[in-house]
Design a protein around this nucleic acid. Structure first.
Lengths: 211, 211
DNA sequence: CGCACTACTACCCGATCGGGTAGTCGGTCA
DNA sequence: TGACCGACTACCCGATCGGGTAGTAGTGCG
């Protein structure tokens, strides 16, 4: 064992308890050193600029600026930054967005201490880290055509329970327009009707219901 | 200030990080003392029996045995036990179930340290603690008639995207039977169609989609 | 005992939905 | 330039949905 400089970490999470927990869990491992913490995305960007950590542990869902946007901005400033996203949710869309935003890994909050540590070490080596089952599920849907921006708008309204006519009114086209979009959406999500589409969309994280 | 014996706490959460975080946050407040931890519901029941804590902080969603069931069993053994449920989700149904199971309070994981401490102190006094906005939302829907067991079965299948005919086949009655159930469900949830019903059901925690 | 309520079945009917087909318009990429 | 694709509009048609109404069986409640 040769002595190595500790990996310097920036912790970003809006939950105080989670930050404290991560710090507590990592405190006794000399390979890691928590050098800063932040409670929202904007603070994370500032803290990253100031401290230039080796790895940033970034919560996905946060007030002010979410983890995805924070990841994008950090990568814009520091393309070599290593970002490990941290989340409770395994919605595929979140993961896809996180990876697109430049994250090097994706860690579920219910991971064990061992997982946390191996994720950190893996990311530090410049490799990608994803939870076991997730990598497979992600590949499955990655082949399929993604929804267009317009289709996501329609889907969002659909998930509010609007009828074809109401969706058309909101988006400013005819009910036939809604139907055309729905047909494309159904095909891409491989479902038969609007209800199924909404359920799948929620499962995959294409739309949010937490309101 | 007269010196008081610290409030003895049992922490129950399947996330190591959360347990560590709670312990870390409470460590510096002498009014509290963490005397034991558990990682699932079954272990929580055992730990409660053994340590008889003043307050048990119980995560709702856990493997092996969830927090609701654990709360029920703990209360069965120790009717005076004070239980503070801890969760990320604010689905109303979870809260209702938790309170029915005998919880004295319900704390969201994104609460501040101040909230955590005042929740603990409130519960210790034997009073009920609920997050601000939640108490109101809960009262709103508490007036409304709850769904029957059969209606929940139908709702569950509805949330899988099944048609009236398919639901009827699964449950063993005619499509008219499905329609009769749906009419009752729509009325109780105050929605106009199946898609809206599913969204509301997911929001309120009446059905789960995490799979 | 009657009353209320859930769990259905059944029929009617208009509105909505979903699928098939076809064509226009604008942007992109080779 | 032509080929392709997304965003529509439009029309047809059968299936499904949701609402109104009515009636039966079974259960729990006072």
């Amino acid at each position: 064992m040769k002595p190595v400089a500790p990996i310097r970490l920036l912790l970003v999470d809006d939950h105080l308890v989670v930050r404290a927990g991560l710090a507590a869990v990592l405190k006794f491992d000399t390979r890691f050193q928590v050098i800063a913490e932040a409670g929202d995305g904007a603070a994370a960007v500032d803290a990253h600029r100031k401290h230039q950590p080796d790895i940033t542990l970034l919560d996905v869902r946060m007030p002010v600026m979410d983890g995805i946007e924070a990841a994008r901005r950090i990568r814009a400033e520091s393309p070599a930054a290593r970002l490990l996203m941290l989340t409770t949710y395994d919605a595929e869309e979140d993961i896809r967005l996180a990876l697109d935003a430049g994250a090097s890994g994706y860690l579920l909050k219910n991971s064990s201490q061992d997982d946390l540590i191996s994720a950190l070490l893996t990311v530090q080596r410049g490799e990608r880290w994803l939870p076991a089952g997730l990598a497979r599920r992600l590949r499955e849907h990655t082949q399929e055509a993604p929804l267009s921006a317009r289709q996501l708008e329609v889907l969002e309204l659909l998930a509010k329970g609007l009828s074809n006519k109401e969706i058309a009114a909101v988006l400013g086209f005819t009910t036939d327009g809604t139907k055309a979009h729905l047909r494309a959406i159904f095909a891409k999500l491989a479902v038969a009707d609007r209800t199924e589409a909404v359920v799948i969309a929620i499962q995959r994280g294409l739309v949010r219901v937490d309101g």
